[in-house]
Amino acid sequence: MLVLTRRVGETIRIGDDVSICILDVQRGQVRVAIDAPREIPVHREEIYKAVQAENQRAADAARSHDPAALWKSNRRSEEKP
């Protein structure tokens, strides 16, 4: 892993077409501007990981459950007065 230090206003370039500019540093928070081609999605790590994990769990659960039965039972409980 490459570790490097940058000042506010400086940029890191990754390959030909990705650049990350440090905009601001305040109280332990860093604001960055990321410029990347549209085919490279950019996400906050924790959000992307959460969605990956949720997809995995949804695919796993889909194998062992009957979603239609769950759907209908939810509907029934909703229709009760």
Partner: peptide, 16 residues
């Protein structure tokens, strides 16, 4: 949206 039926509870992933 993708549904998850884990644990017998249906939830929808509105985030993705």
């Amino acid at each position: 949206v993708v549904l998850n039926c884990e644990g017998g509870n249906l939830t929808a992933n509105l985030r993705a």
